[in-house]
Nucleic acid binder design. Structure first.
Lengths: 119, 119
DNA sequence: CGGAATCCTTGGAGATACTG
DNA sequence: CAGTATCTCCAAGGATTCCG
């Protein structure tokens, strides 16, 4: 269905719009750092994240956790104790995502070295 | 240098801070769509991008192009004609990046299907 | 402890007009 | 044609307070 010669040996849509979808979530502030923190242990508490990322406000942290949960990237478990205890963990999907981002990581390392530094 | 048992069979830093660096650029509005447009042809003109993405303002398009160029992701070639002609193209690094984002694409597809849809 | 509600602040995006 | 220069505006982030 795509016959134009100049497009044949080109990787079409190398960067698909699909990515925009996940970008709209991961692109938000702190989202990646939160996910990263959650990779360090099986479960992580609200206050632990705050301790790891002190600059984040609880407003935003709370927002992000909701959004990530809503997207199925993290799981939330509430213990009805006093004081209350809440644990967050990554879903399998987030772990898969992490693998992919590792590749991106390696690219960033390389890219940083090769960067023209024209300034 | 990492001996704690609970961390042994965990991929540490699955999501590195490194990614934040590229994220701070790609996360900006239109950045990905611009790159995507540039994958379609060897060279692309300013007005062609605008035509492909009509909703973008030239202010923002101009900003993004500068930023992407500064990061070594795109290349700019100016023809001193009247009217002036400017062509943009991807650098090798951006093409490599595109490959990686393809993997992310595939993940998004899968992830979208498996999404809990709890609402 | 883990948030929600509230208010405040800012920078990034958009529209418009102009220029080499 | 390919931008730059201004201006405006609003959503997203931050600080603080309070609550179950």
């Amino acid at each position: 269905m795509e016959t134009e010669p100049e497009k044949e040996n080109r990787v079409r849509s190398q960067i698909e719009c699909q990515v925009d979808e996940i970008w709209s979530i991961l692109g938000k502030t702190w989202a990646l750092l939160i996910l990263k923190k959650l990779t360090e242990n099986e479960v992580t508490r609200f206050s632990e994240i705050k301790k790891a990322i002190p600059e984040i406000s609880n407003t935003v942290l709370s927002d992000r956790l909701h959004q990530l949960e809503e997207q199925g990237l993290i799981r939330k478990k509430v213990y009805a104790q006093v004081p209350i205890r809440v644990e967050y963990s990554l879903t399998k999907q987030a772990i898969d995502l992490g693998k992919i981002l590792e590749g991106l990581d390696r690219w960033v390392i390389k890219w940083r070295k090769e960067k023209p530094r024209k300034k």
